[in-house]
């Protein structure tokens, strides 16, 4: 489709003189631009702009020796239990009977509230994901520790009592 536009070449030269054709070089660039943009679109879609990041997770060494277990003050501890259907159950200290329910959004206020009331050296958050929690829930909870600048936290499995209590609560609330 490249066009060679001819200019008006009527000249005042004699009849025997050959006309020198002056061609204005107008190349139609539409297909080229099309191709260019097609390739751009392809590269935009195939490029992963955001590099994956990574979060550090340090677990404690498993010890059978009870003396080496981390001691936590009852007054300074907050236990978050991650259940089915993105629900978080929490209680303070050993007060399992006063189990309360919240969501991942509401978790921040509860943690900050506890943080403001507790001396920093006593504060300890225990994360207990149960069997029905997803990996996303665990990462969200660990991330929340980073966001709220909690330096002391641990991830533990819930006890059998706690798990049955969660299941009862879930049944009562009808969470599938």
């Amino acid at each position: 489709m490249a066009e060679m536009e001819e200019k008006d070449t009527s000249s005042k030269k004699g009849p025997g003189v050959k006309k020198a054709k002056k061609a204005a070089m107008h190349v139609d660039m539409t297909p080229m631009v099309d191709l260019g943009f097609l390739l751009i679109t392809f590269f935009i879609f195939s490029t992963t702009m955001s590099q994956p990041t990574s979060m550090n997770l340090n677990m404690p060494k498993d010890t059978k020796d009870q003396n080496q277990d981390t001691k936590v003050k009852e007054s300074g501890s907050l236990t978050l239990m991650l259940g089915k259907g993105n629900v978080v159950y929490y209680y303070y200290g050993n007060d399992l009977l006063h189990l309360q329910t919240t969501t991942y959004k509401g978790m921040r206020n509860i943690i900050l509230d506890k943080k403001s009331k507790t001396p920093p050296e006593d504060l300890f958050v225990i994360i207990k994901p149960d069997k029905d929690a997803s990996y996303k829930n665990v990462v969200d909870a660990l991330d929340e520790m980073n966001i709220d600048d909690i330096s002391r936290y641990a991830m533990v499995d819930p006890t059998a009592d706690e798990y049955s209590l969660i299941q009862k609560t879930e049944q009562a609330a009808g969470i599938q």
């Binding site: 955001s50 990041t53 990574s54 550090n56 997770l57 677990m59 990462v139 991330d143």
Partner: peptide
């Protein structure tokens, strides 16, 4: 005992402790 969990970057919520 040390792992890296692969995640996608997210903005730090404004006003939070971090």
């Amino acid at each position: 005992y040390k792992y890296n969990l692969m995640t996608n970057a997210e903005e730090v919520p404004e006003g939070s402790e971090l």
